[in-house]
Design a protein around this nucleic acid. Structure first.
Length: 271
DNA sequence: AACGAGACCTGGCAGC
DNA sequence: TGCTGCCAGGTCTCGT
């Protein structure tokens, strides 16, 4: 599920847990992308959750002695339960709080991660080399234009590079490029400064729109098996191969770029 | 430095 | 019904 808006929506939904104290931790399956540290079931109980933040698609739960870092991979989701319920097949990790709440990580494909960081989390290898957050001021057309000068790969691949900017996943890469009127196949270094301005603006707008839709469906999102409302939102191009472009009516095309599907309108998007 | 392929996993679905 | 092959929202690691 998780692109940036989903992760941020998840974070906001979990904020009521800040200040709560952990009662126990259950690890049912340690084999996610990296093994879940075995010591967590001793380390975490009795610690208070001090803050819950996000960097890129990583959720950072700060405790007295360290930071728990969570990533949802391709298929992960976090459910916040009012009280304990029977675990299902892919429920790998639980945090039970003293007030009865249970944070439960479900991840069928197990591309997600649960890691424990000591010291400054931003110095961890996974976080230290990340690009700016797309919704913050550090990311704009000038930055984008500067960064892509040396990049000859297709612009769609380049905006998905987390070292350049974080949080642009496969859906929103296609959507942002459509909204900016830019062909996904265009070599990144061919983009003019004005088109970089436009692209940066549309990346922000696309993510903000998804965030606004996600925020309005928080309750569903955190139900036992609810889906985020914007899952059903109507995309301009994503998943719409052969259907009429919402702007000009031309059939939407799909291609493969770096093993991932890309969707675009051949009339609205230009080289 | 930058690029692309491969890797990690399971589940759902179309087609035979 | 069951099999096969393909598809899926991420991203690190490695060889070129």
């Amino acid at each position: 599920m998780p692109e940036l808006p989903e992760v941020e929506t998840t974070r906001r939904g979990l904020l009521p847990l800040v200040g709560q104290t952990i009662h126990k931790v259950i690890v049912r399956n340690t084999s996610l992308r990296w093994p879940i540290p075995g010591h967590l079931s001793q380390t975490l109980p009795n610690q208070q959750l001090l803050a819950l933040t996000r960097r890129a698609k990583y959720l950072l739960a700060r405790f007295e002695t360290g930071t728990l870092m969570l990533h949802l991979g391709m298929s992960g989701r976090i459910c916040l339960l009012e009280k304990d319920e029977p675990a299902q097949k892919h429920d790998h990790f639980d945090i039970h709080f003293t007030d009865g709440h249970v944070l439960r990580l479900r991840d069928p494909r197990r591309f997600g991660a649960v890691l424990w960081l000591e010291g400054d989390p931003m110095r961890h290898a996974l976080l230290a080399s990340l690009g700016p957050e797309p919704l913050e001021d550090g990311f704009d057309g000038a930055y984008l234009h500067r960064q892509i000068r040396t990049r000859s790969a297709p612009v769609k691949n380049v905006i998905m590079d987390s070292h350049l900017v974080v949080g642009v996943g496969n859906i929103y890469a296609s959507e942002s490029l459509f909204r900016a009127g830019i062909s996904p196949k265009l070599p990144a270094n061919k983009l003019s400064k004005p088109r970089c301005d436009r692209l940066a603006q549309e990346i922000k707008a696309t993510l903000n729109d998804a965030l606004a839709a996600g925020g309005s469906s928080l309750r569903d999102f955190f139900g036992a098996d609810g889906n985020p409302g914007y899952f059903q939102q109507s995309y301009f191009v994503y998943g719409r191969t052969g259907k009429a472009c919402r702007v000009c009516g031309t059939p939407i095309k799909s291609i493969k770029q770096r093993q991932r599907s890309t969707f675009y309108c051949p009339k609205c998007q230009h080289n």
